[in-house]
Design a protein around this nucleic acid. Structure first.
Lengths: 327, 327
DNA sequence: TACTATAATGTAATCGTTTACATTATAAAC
DNA sequence: GTTTATAATGTAAACGATTACATTATAGTA
C-alpha cells in the first residue's frame, strides 16, 4: 500500500503538497501539481480513508435504523437517503434492529465509538429514551416514525389527514360500514391514523362502531389475513376495510379472495404506503402514497446539516391517494 | 470525547495498560484492572474505532454488492451475511449498484481506499474483469451469481439441477407443453436453468419447442406480465410456465388472472427463489427454494476467512422444490 | 537593484489507538 | 539476602492522513 509519504518522495515535494493536490486546493502551482499527479498515477496511490477519517475525526458513515429489511415500505426511503448520502460522500450502514433493544444497542455503540457520524431512525419501536440521551451528543433524525416530545427533529407525513382522505374516499364511493385494520395503538402513527378514520366518519354523519376496529400485533401479511378472517365472520359485515399498511391490506385481499367473495364488489380495501407489491396484487390496491423517496432525501439532508452543527427544523411532507382496482 | 490517555491518567497507569484492559488481555493484575475499569466508567470512555482501525489497518466493514435493494430475493441472504458479520464484529455496507458501472466503481473505491475489508458480490451484471483485478489485492466472494473462470471463490446452488426438478415436477403432474420464461442469456444462472429445462424435457421424451422459450430483459414483475401476454397469444398455448424468478412468475399469475383464465387449471406456474411474496399471491406460488440464509452465512464465513488470509473453496448448496397452489 | 507583498511549499504536530521492546516489580529458590 | 525467572507495567513508535504555522520563492514596484 502506497501512502502519502511515498508519493511525496517520488514527486520530490512534501506531504502537505500532495495532500493539497488530493483535496483540490488551488494554492499549488500547476508545475508541481502535474509532478504530483504523475507520482500518484505511477504509484497507483489511493488515499486511505482510515487515516483521513481519524485526522478529521469523522467516519462519513451514517446509520439507518429500520425494524426489518424485509419490509418493503422502507426501500424507497432508503434509496432517497442513499442518493443524498453518496452525493455528499457519505455511506450508509443499514441497521436492522428487529425492534430488539440489544441489537439496537450494537448500532448505538457505533455512533458512540465514532464509527458513525449520525443516525436516521425509522424504527417505531426504538427506545426513545436512549435515543433522546444519544441525541444530546450525536446527530439524530427521525424519519416517518417519530416522537414529538423527544425534541429530535423529524420528517414525516400528516398521518391523520392521509387516513382521513382514505376513509373519505370510501365514503364517497358509497360505503357506510367501514372497518379499520390498525396496528398496535402504542405507535404514534397508529393513533393518528385512527383519529383520521374517526374524523372522516363523524364528518359524514356515520357512527363509530368499536366492533369495526381491529388491532394487529404487527404490520405483516399474515396479520392482515387473520384480521380479515375476523371481519368476515362479523354478523353485520362491513363493506369496506381501511388497513394502515399495504401488507395488512394484501393479507386482507388474499383472505377475501379465499372466502370466495369479490374485491371490490363485496368488500373494498384500501391500504397505506404504496409499496411496489401493491400494484402486483389482484386486484391492484388503492392506497395512500407517501413521498418516500423525498422523505429519504429530506431526512438525509437534515442529518448532514445536523452533523455540520446546524440547527434543523422538522418537516411534514404531502401524501397522495392512489385509487386503483380494490375500491 | 475522552481518549485513552485521559483514562490512563485518571487511573494512574500507562495507555498500554488501558489498551490491554480494553482488549481483555490477561497480563494485567486484577488490582490495576479494577482501577482502570473504574476510570473507564467514571469518564464514560468509549474507544474510538477510527483510531483502532487506523492502527490495525482494517475497517471491519464489508460490502455487499446487489443490483437493487428492491429485489426481495436478496433479503434473506443479507440477513445471513449480517448474522455472521455482527457475530464477528464486522458491519456491512449494502451497496446498490443498479448494475451501473459508475456506481459500482464508487463502491470498489471503498475497498481500494481501505474503507472496506472485503466484498460479497451478488450482482450478476458486475464487471467481472474489474472484479478479477480487484480480487488479486482484496478479499472478494461471489454469492449466488458467479463466474467460474474468474478464480474468485463463490457460493451458489446447482441451478441446472434445480431447474430440472421444477420442470420434472410439471411433467409429472401431466403437463406436456411447458414454456420457459427466462431472463437474458448473458447470465450464467440463466443458461444453467435453461439447460435444466432442456434436460427434463429430453429425459421425458418431450420435444424442445423454441416458440415456448421467452427471454425477458429483467427479472421484474412487469416483464413477467409482458412475457405472459405473449404466451397467452400463442396459437398452441402451453399448459404450464416455468419462470426463472418469482417476480416473473407473479407477473405471469397476474396476467393469467386478468385474462380470465385460471391458475393452475388452465395454466400452471412455477417460480424460482421463494421470496416472501410468493406465499401471498393468489394462488400461492410453487417455487424453488434456495437456502438463502445459509448462502449468506456461508458467504460471510468465506469472506472472513479470506480476509484473514486463508484460501477458501467454493461451495454448492442444496435447493428444494416447494409445491403450492399454482401447480 | 533592493524591498515588499504575495504565492508556493515545507515542517512538524495531531487525531486515538495498538504493540514491540524495555523496564521494573514480584515471587521463588538457594 | 542474593540471584533468577517471570509477571506486570511503561515508553515510544507506528498507522496515514490534514493543517497551522514557518519558511522560501516569485513577481511587482520604486
Amino acid at each position: 500500500m502506497t501512502n502519502i509519504q511515498q508519493v511525496a518522495k517520488q514527486a520530490g515535494v512534501s506531504v502537505a503538497t500532495v495532500s493539497r493536490v488530493m483535496n483540490g486546493q488551488n494554492t499549488v502551482s500547476s508545475k508541481t501539481r502535474i509532478k504530483v499527479e504523475e507520482a500518484i498515477k505511477s504509484l497507483n496511490y489511493e488515499p486511505s480513508i482510515l487515516g483521513r477519517n481519524l485526522r478529521n475525526s469523522e467516519s462519513r458513515i451514517f446509520l439507518i435504523l429500520i425494524p426489518s429489511i424485509s419490509n418493503p415500505f422502507y426501500l424507497e426511503i432508503i434509496k432517497g437517503i442513499e442518493y443524498i448520502a453518496l452525493s455528499q460522500n457519505y455511506n450508509i450502514l443499514l441497521c436492522e434492529t428487529d425492534s430488539n433493544p440489544e441489537k439496537e444497542n450494537i448500532y448505538f455503540d457505533l455512533v458512540r465509538k465514532k464509527m458513525a457520524d449520525g443516525i436516521i431512525s425509522m424504527d417505531p419501536a426504538v427506545n426513545i429514551e436512549t435515543l433522546k440521551v444519544l441525541a444530546e451528543k450525536y446527530s439524530i433524525i427521525q424519519c416517518s416514525e417519530y416522537s414529538t416530545d423527544s425534541g429530535i427533529p423529524y420528517v414525516t407525513i400528516n398521518n391523520e389527514e392521509a387516513s382521513y382522505r382514505a376513509v373519505k374516499h370510501l365514503i364517497q364511493i358509497g360505503h357506510k360500514k367501514i372497518a379499520l385494520m390498525n396496528s398496535d395503538g402504542k405507535f404514534l402513527y397508529s393513533r393518528q391514523r385512527e383519529e383520521g378514520y374517526q374524523r372522516a366518519l363523524e364528518e359524514h354523519g356515520l357512527s363509530l362502531n368499536d366492533d369495526y376496529i381491529f388491532y394487529t400485533k404487527h404490520l405483516g401479511f399474515e396479520h392482515g389475513q387473520q384480521a380479515m378472517k375476523k371481519i368476515l365472520a362479523l354478523q353485520d359485515r362491513p363493506t369496506a376495510v381501511f388497513a394502515v399498511s399495504d401488507l395488512l391490506a394484501i393479507g386482507a385481499l388474499k383472505e377475501v379472495n379465499a372466502s370466495g367473495l369479490h374485491v371490490p364488489n363485496d368488500i373494498a380495501v384500501v391500504g397505506f404506503d404504496k409499496i411496489d407489491f401493491s400494484s402486483m396484487t389482484n386486484p391492484t390496491l388503492t392506497t395512500i402514497a407517501q413521498p418516500m423517496y423525498k422523505m429519504g432525501t429530506v431526512a438525509a439532508e437534515m442529518l448532514i446539516e445536523k452533523i455540520k452543527g446546524n440547527e434543523v427544523d422538522s418537516v411534514i411532507l404531502d401524501h397522495e391517494l392512489v385509487i386503483r382496482e380494490s375500491t
